[in-house]
Simulated scan of single mutants.
Amino acid sequence: MTADQLQQLIAAGLPCEHLEVTGDGRHWAAVIVSPAFEGMRAIARHKRVYATLGERIQSDEVHALSMKTYTPAEWAAK
Rank of each mutant, 00 (worst) to 15 (best):
L19K: 05
W75E: 00
V62Y: 01
K47N: 13
M67C: 14
Y70Q: 07
P72M: 11
D4E: 14
R41Q: 14
R26M: 12
Q8P: 03
L14I: 07
T2E: 09
I32D: 04
A11Y: 00
A73G: 08
S66W: 03
D4P: 00
A30G: 07
Q8V: 09
A76D: 09
G25I: 09
G25K: 12
A42S: 15
Y70P: 03
W75R: 10
I43Y: 08
Y50P: 02
A30H: 03
H63T: 05
D24P: 05
E74F: 08
H46A: 11
E55K: 09
C16R: 00
D24Y: 05
T2F: 08
A29T: 03
A44K: 15
D24R: 08
T71I: 00
A42H: 14
A3L: 01
S59V: 06
I43K: 10
L65N: 06
A64K: 11
T69W: 02
I32S: 01
A3M: 07
G39Q: 13
Q5E: 14
T69N: 10
M67R: 07
A3T: 12
W75I: 08
G54V: 11
Y50E: 06
P72L: 12
D4K: 13
R56E: 12
R48P: 01
W28D: 01
S66F: 07
W28H: 01
Q5T: 14
K68D: 09
E61L: 13
G54D: 10
D24M: 07
M1S: 07
Y50M: 11
T22G: 03
G54P: 02
G54W: 08
A73L: 09
R26Y: 13
H63S: 08
I57Y: 01
G13F: 01
E38N: 15
L53Y: 06
